[in-house]
């Protein structure tokens, strides 16, 4: 870990300005991912700007029935929030399935969105990794691939985004509010993370110095049920092999509306829009669910070490939709 300076920001504009002045500075939230990476040498900023005391730790109802989640709200507080538990069970479930109680007490909303891949080569500075060192290649293409992407990957990077929370937020059509030197902008969560292309070093569309101030969750229409299912090798305290966040409304046996996001399959939370199109207006049956899953997975390009994810996504997605449709039918 290289030496670094530390400043505590007192207000949002001050925090943004400190980063603007220093291209090697980074925001420090809960630290659960940043300190991890500092210690491994994955990243080496020379200034940390602590943004945990900017008053961004509130969860507020919005006039339209939605909820605004502050950028430094702790994962545990978000999962425990009454509004979130009642209105967005998919989000509470996703948060609770991530990391551990201790880590959720430190980790922030903004930090969770910005957490970096768990690819073992990204974390091991003695191995080539184009995400860590642009242009150095991708060790995973010939290496350990169990946690890697089957959708939207490139020859430069097959890493996945590790967040559970972000997958649920993708299914909820959340909007990320960002403050930079030029003011505030709102980015739909589904556009917030990038696919790797030939710039795998860029995880998101954020520019240096932009701070996540909040995530807005739009209201879910009446009758919509939501659920998060995470599949992993061990029962807890593990990253997803794959996960499914789904929101479903079934009326008279027909899918009235549906939103699906997949985790563990791509460089970003993967909004399964092909499956959604297939499902809208279709009968809520196992057959439709299977067809929709297959339609989404038609674009899958697994590598040898993660080919199992194709049937795994299919099985998991069908199960989640089946369970949700049984729930809505009640």
């Amino acid at each position: 870990m290289r030496p670094f300076d530390y400043r505590r920001a007192d207000d949002i504009d001050g925090a943004v300005a400190m980063l603007a002045l220093n291209p090697s500075a980074a925001f420090l939230g809960g630290g659960t991912n940043l300190v991890d990476h500092l210690r491994l040498g994955v990243t080496a900023p020379d200034l940390l700007v602590d943004v945990t005391r900017l008053g961004l730790d509130r969860i507020e109802p919005l006039a339209d029935g939605g909820v605004r989640v502050g950028g430094t709200v702790r994962n545990s507080d978000l999962a425990a929030d009454r509004l979130v538990r009642e209105r967005y069970p998919v989000l509470a479930q996703a948060l609770l399935s991530g990391a551990s109680g201790q880590l959720r007490n430190l980790a922030t909303t903004g930090g969770n969105l910005l957490q970096r891949t768990r690819c073992v080569y990204f974390q091991d500075v003695t191995t080539p990794c184009g995400k860590r060192e642009p242009g150095s290649g991708c060790s995973a293409l010939r290496g350990y691939q169990r946690y890697h992407a089957i959708l939207g990957a490139s020859s430069a990077c097959i890493a996945t985004h590790p967040s559970d929370m972000a997958v649920a937020m993708a299914a909820l059509d959340a909007v990320v509010r960002v403050r930079g030197r030029d003011g505030e902008r709102a980015v739909p969560l589904t556009d917030f993370h990038r696919l790797p292309g030939d710039e795998p070093q860029r995880d998101t569309v954020l520019q240096h110095g932009e701070l996540i101030t909040a995530v807005d969750l739009p209201p879910l229409p009446e009758g919509m049920r939501s659920r998060y299912r995470k599949v992993r090798d061990r029962a807890s305290y593990a990253f997803a092999l794959v996960s499914v966040a789904a929101v479903l409304d079934v009326r008279d046996g027909t899918v009235a509306d549906v939103r699906i996001a997949l985790g563990g399959v791509a460089h970003k939370p993967w909004r399964a829009s092909v499956a959604e199109r297939e499902l809208r207006g279709a009968p809520a049956t196992a057959d439709s669910f299977r067809r929709a899953a297959d339609a989404e997975l038609a674009a899958a390009e697994p590598v040898e070490g993660n080919a199992f994810k194709v049937p795994l996504v299919r099985g998991t997605l069908v199960a989640v939709l089946r369970e949700l449709s049984e729930e809505t039918a009640r």
């Binding site: 073992v120 974390q123 350990y144 946690y147 061990r234 305290y237």
Partner: peptide, 16 residues
């Protein structure tokens, strides 16, 4: 060994 830490080398947790 590629998975050389406790996040990637899984040992049983309490929930297992």
């Amino acid at each position: 060994v590629a998975n050389h830490d406790f996040a990637e080398y899984h040992i049983a947790t309490n929930a297992d």
